[in-house]
Each structure stands twice: as structure tokens, then as C-alpha cells.
Amino acid sequence: MRILYLINSLNGGGAERPLPAVIGMMRACGHTVRVVALARKAGNAVAWLEAAGIDYHIVDDHDPARFASLRQVLRYVRANPPDLLWTSLTRATLYGQAIGRMLRIPVVSWQHSAFLKPANRFMLRRTRYQSAFWVADSEYVARVTRSQLGLPPDRICTWPLFMAGADVPPATPWGGQGDAVFHVGSLGRLEPEKNMQLLVRAMGVIRATRPDARIHLSLCGSGSQMMALQALAAREAPDAINFEGFQPDPLEFCRRLHVYVQPSHFEGLCIAVHEAMQVGLPVIATPVGAIPDIIRDGGNGFLLAPPTPETLAAQILHLYARPDLCMQIGRAARRDILHRYGADVVRAMATAVIRRAEGLVRPRHG
């Protein structure tokens, strides 16, 4: 089966990071896959695709910020007809649905986030049956998508976009030694929905109330809020916060930390939280999206409620003072993630979805 995997861009966000693993499982089932992007954007995912030997094409690469038009994508698909269109993110899904209808190519569509802009939710609800079925990246997103798009249960299935491996080395636990620095970090696009200003303000509270605490924050990612966050950091805790930009190896970044914070306003699966837990970090996160499905407050992580700079600062300081608790929570986090997202579990779910997609193509070749 020839699969054309249509995605908005190769920016390097949460929908692009799992591409090598997703395409790898499709290949393992015997299929040929080409990733086709409507735009390059930052292009951070290009290195991941090339390292995995994945064929890709950017429909219009003259301006990295510009999405290709529906006409351009239709022309490309006509010249390179696949057996199946697999779409990711709203614009690519709407394009894929229209092209699939015109060229009589079956369409399967990902749903990555529980949050849809009102206009996108309206459009996808109208076109929901133009995708043969939908694939959610978590049980939480599946539940919300059924409600938002008005889908019957048999039109959506789950393929977790995270696979844990016991071979991934754990981070070094916080020891609490006198001159050691307690490293706090967060990964994500520096956009309003990630709410990174909450974490920066929490560092300001720590600086004001515990100037003796040797706590340092690393923020990784890029986005429209970079300059505003840098200015806020310069006011709140200028020598205790640094911005490290895009991280090609999130696991390596997490292994340098002692605690991970996810202060988002909303999330879907949130791969970054899973990666932090996989390396054995205690995670402090807002209870949004699928995060409460995987974090047991006080058991394998901490849910931040209410999400204020003061409560976040207090939780960071509590862990700073309790190396034993850091180690206990981190070990529980790693154990739970390896159990829930082990290779055998995720491969079985992915294979079931791929086999269902194969059933869309066989009748056309019969």
C-alpha cells in the first residue's frame, strides 16, 4: 500500500516529533510512505526524517512560512497517486478530505489535540465523514473528539504517539548536596497555550522568598512569545533562567534535569510529559488534556491546582528540600510509563489501526 502522509508542516512540534516512529510502524507492516508537508515552517523535523531515511516532500518550499494551496496539493497528488491519504492537523485534513473525495482515495485522519479553534471544529464537524475513520493519540483525545465532532465510537480509534523504552537511561536523581544546582526545565513551543510565563513568574517568587535556593530554570523551544518571556525573565530572575531554543533530543535535555514542569493551558497526549517521566523525573503539570490520565497526584507526579506562580514555586521548593521524595516520585513515574507505553502495547495498538486502514484499500484493488 502506498501511503501519502499529509501534514501541515515540518515545524518540529508535537505532531511531527513522533513521525519517525509512526512511519516506521507503517513500514514494518509492509507499506511505502511519503511524508508531504504543506509548508516547511522552522523545518526542525527535517533532520528527524532524514536520519530515519523517510521520504518527504514540501509542496511549496519557496517561502517557509507559507502553506501550499489546495490546488497545488491536488496537482501533486494527481501526479503521485497513493492508495491511501493519511492526514495530520486541521488544514492538512481538510485538504486531504477534499482531494480524497475528488480522486476517490480513502482518507484516514489523526486528531492530536483536545482543543480545536471554533472555526476548525465547525469545519471538521461538517466534513467528519469524509475521513473513513479517525485516529486519536490518546484515550482522552478520543473521548473529546467523539463529542466535539459528533462521531460514533466506531469511527475513531486510538494509537498512542509515544512508546517507552527501558533502554533509555534515567536522569541522575537530585541529591541535595550543598553547592549543587537544582535544575528545573520545560519543553514546548513558546506560544500562549503553553503558559510558560507561569513558570517564569514562579521563579520570580522563588527568588523573592528564597534567594539562597540554588535553583535554575531552562526553557526549551521557540515561538512568538520568546521576546516577551525573555523580558519577563530579565525582571523576575535574570541569572536563574536561560532559554535553550529548539532541542533535537528532548530525552537528552530531560536527563539534565531534576524536575520537569508542564504549565500548559491545554494539551492532548503531551509527549514531553511522557518523555520526562520516562527518564525518571518528578513532573509538575497543570491538570489538562490527557495529563490527569497518566499522573497520579502525589503518586507518580504532581498536578498543579490552582495554577498560580505561588503554588508552583511552593511545589518546586518542596522538591528542592526533599531529595528522597524526588527519587521516589521519579522512580514511580518511570515504572508507570514503561508499563503503560511499553513497545509491545503500543505496537499492538498501532498495528490494529494500520490493518484497519488496509481494509479501506483492498476492496479498491479487488
Score class of each variant (00 low, 15 high):
residue 97 Q to S: 07
residue 98 A to T: 06
residue 98 A to N: 03
residue 100 G to W: 09
residue 101 R to F: 04
residue 102 M to H: 13
residue 103 L to H: 08
residue 103 L to Y: 11
residue 104 R to C: 05
residue 105 I to A: 07
residue 105 I to Y: 09
residue 107 V to Q: 09
residue 107 V to L: 07
residue 107 V to T: 10
residue 107 V to W: 13
residue 107 V to H: 10
residue 107 V to P: 10
residue 107 V to D: 14
residue 107 V to K: 08
residue 108 V to N: 03
residue 109 S to G: 03
residue 110 W to S: 15
residue 110 W to V: 06
residue 110 W to G: 14
residue 111 Q to Y: 02
residue 111 Q to N: 12
residue 112 H to C: 14
residue 113 S to A: 15
residue 113 S to E: 15
residue 114 A to R: 11
residue 114 A to C: 15
residue 114 A to G: 15
residue 116 L to K: 05
residue 116 L to F: 14
residue 116 L to Q: 09
residue 116 L to N: 10
residue 116 L to M: 13
residue 118 P to T: 07
residue 118 P to E: 07
residue 120 N to W: 11
residue 120 N to Y: 14
residue 121 R to G: 05
residue 121 R to T: 02
residue 122 F to T: 02
residue 123 M to P: 04
residue 123 M to I: 09
residue 123 M to S: 05
residue 123 M to N: 04
residue 123 M to W: 10
residue 124 L to I: 02
residue 124 L to W: 01
residue 126 R to Y: 05
residue 126 R to M: 12
residue 127 T to A: 12
residue 127 T to Q: 12
residue 127 T to H: 08
residue 128 R to Q: 10
residue 128 R to G: 07
residue 128 R to W: 05
residue 128 R to S: 10
residue 129 Y to F: 14
residue 129 Y to G: 05
residue 129 Y to S: 12
residue 129 Y to L: 14
residue 130 Q to Y: 10
residue 130 Q to K: 13
residue 130 Q to C: 13
residue 131 S to H: 12
residue 131 S to R: 12
residue 131 S to N: 14
residue 132 A to N: 07
residue 133 F to W: 04
residue 133 F to L: 05
residue 133 F to N: 01
residue 133 F to D: 01
residue 135 V to G: 04
residue 136 A to V: 13
residue 136 A to S: 11
residue 137 D to Q: 06
residue 137 D to E: 12
residue 137 D to N: 15
residue 137 D to M: 07
residue 137 D to K: 03
residue 138 S to W: 09
residue 139 E to G: 05
residue 139 E to N: 02
residue 140 Y to I: 13
residue 140 Y to R: 09
residue 140 Y to W: 13
residue 141 V to S: 00
residue 141 V to G: 01
residue 142 A to F: 00
residue 142 A to N: 00
residue 143 R to I: 01
residue 143 R to D: 05
residue 144 V to P: 01
residue 144 V to T: 06
residue 144 V to I: 15
residue 144 V to W: 01
residue 144 V to K: 01
residue 145 T to W: 00
residue 145 T to C: 00
residue 145 T to Y: 00
residue 145 T to Q: 00
residue 145 T to H: 00
residue 145 T to R: 00
